[in-house]
Write a protein that binds this DNA or RNA. Structure first.
Lengths: 112, 112
DNA sequence: CTGAATCCGTCTCGATACTG
DNA sequence: CAGTATCGAGACGGATTCAG
């Protein structure tokens, strides 16, 4: 909407470096939880709520929107009544999930 | 100090699962920045401030303490005047850094 | 079922000033 | 140089209510 907002100094450093950009995104715990959940396949809103357990409806909706913006999640609305909507990782999201997966292995071995 | 504080429901879910525990830790952007910085070798307080650029002294100190607690960072105080203290990744910290490194590659290729 | 919209407390974090 | 201590703005996110 407004592309003229000046970037802060911090934002300039971040935008100039892909690694920094990814850090800013990955350091969102809800994104990590959703990737972890969707890694096992397509899920509906309620399924995500129940699988993640500790996420609220508000943060789920909000974070899914961000992830769709990033192109990591695909939303499918079947236009039925009652509503049926599901979410799944896009190919890009899957590739990110794969890069993240070794972290699970590391966690299982190294978290006391 | 106090080991009798009851765990919230969320904390119980988290503590029961290494993956969740790691998510909680990794979703701390300052931890990610410091790992990224120390990956290139031993650094002093000021060097870290200048390398990361967007971190404050407060968050640097605070986060380094957490990482030392986790056993990921080793602090060496040379007991000199003026003070000389440096920080480096422990073997455990290095192993985490290695698992994280593919994320940099992914970022370079997939962040627009 | 899948959300949207508010309210509002909590906690993070930057800024600042100070110490050895 | 390497921190410590404090204050307060603002972001974050839970709870609740309402809607299609």
């Amino acid at each position: 909407m407004d592309s003229t907002i000046p970037l802060s100094v911090a934002e300039q450093f971040i935008q100039a470096c892909p690694s920094r950009q990814l850090i800013e995104v990955i350091s969102n715990k809800w994104i990590l939880y959703i990737i972890w959940a969707l890694d096992s396949g397509t899920m509906r809103n309620n399924e995500l709520l129940r699988k993640i357990e500790i996420i609220s409806q508000k943060m789920l909706t909000q974070t899914l929107k961000e992830m769709i913006q990033h192109g990591w999640v695909i939303r499918t609305d079947y236009q039925t009544v009652p509503p049926h909507v599901d979410y799944r990782l896009s190919p890009l999201g899957m590739s990110l999930s794969e890069v993240l997966r070794p972290l699970d292995v590391w966690a299982a071995e190294n978290i006391r």
